[in-house]
């Protein structure tokens, strides 16, 4: 009883752990025989956008184009091309959009610097807000004002 109840939980845990590391290689035959080269190919593929699904890497996607591009990456890794050469080959054909993380340039500067800018803006706003909150002690009442206040509050 206990064991059977634990089984779905185990399955779920296995699914979660497995899901985290699952790579899309649909067919083990796609993988390179050399584990070091396969690891490098997976790392490069993880930075390349699947242009069909657009928010997945080619390693995570099972689209036919992603499969073809995985194959290209593996061919070039086996041929001894550097990571830079493979990325250049890809951007030459598909543009900067194929990089999941855009390179830092004038057109992407705002994108990359936004977290820092937001933090600075937040600190400035917070600093100004605390400064404004400091209590300003009002000037003591004059005799006239005190007399008016007494009259208004009904004190004789």
């Amino acid at each position: 009883m206990k064991a059977s109840r634990r089984f779905p939980a185990l399955l779920l845990a296995a699914g979660l752990i497995g899901g985290g590391v699952a790579l899309a290689v649909d067919d083990p035959a796609e993988m390179l025989p050399n584990p070091a080269q396969e690891k490098r190919a997976e790392a490069i593929g993880a930075h390349l956008r699947c242009l069909v699904c657009q928010n997945e890497s080619i390693e995570d996607s099972s689209a036919p184009l992603a499969r073809d591009l995985r194959k290209v990456v593996r061919e070039q890794v086996s041929a001894g091309k550097s990571d830079q050469q493979i990325m250049d080959w890809m951007t030459e054909r598909y543009g900067e959009f194929i990089r999941l993380a855009p390179q830092f340039s004038w057109s992407t500067a705002l994108l990359w610097l936004m977290p820092a800018l937001a933090l600075v803006a937040g600190l400035v706003i917070a600093w100004r807000a605390t400064k404004r909150r400091t209590v300003v002690t009002p000037a003591p009442l004059t005799d006239d004002e005190r007399a008016r206040l007494d009259a208004l509050s009904g004190r004789e």
Binding site: L51, V52, L65, D68, L69, V72, R93, Y94, G95
Partner: peptide, 8 residues
């Protein structure tokens, strides 16, 4: 198609 930058 890949050399032409075709995505679909």
């Amino acid at each position: 198609a890949i050399d032409w930058g075709v995505t679909g």
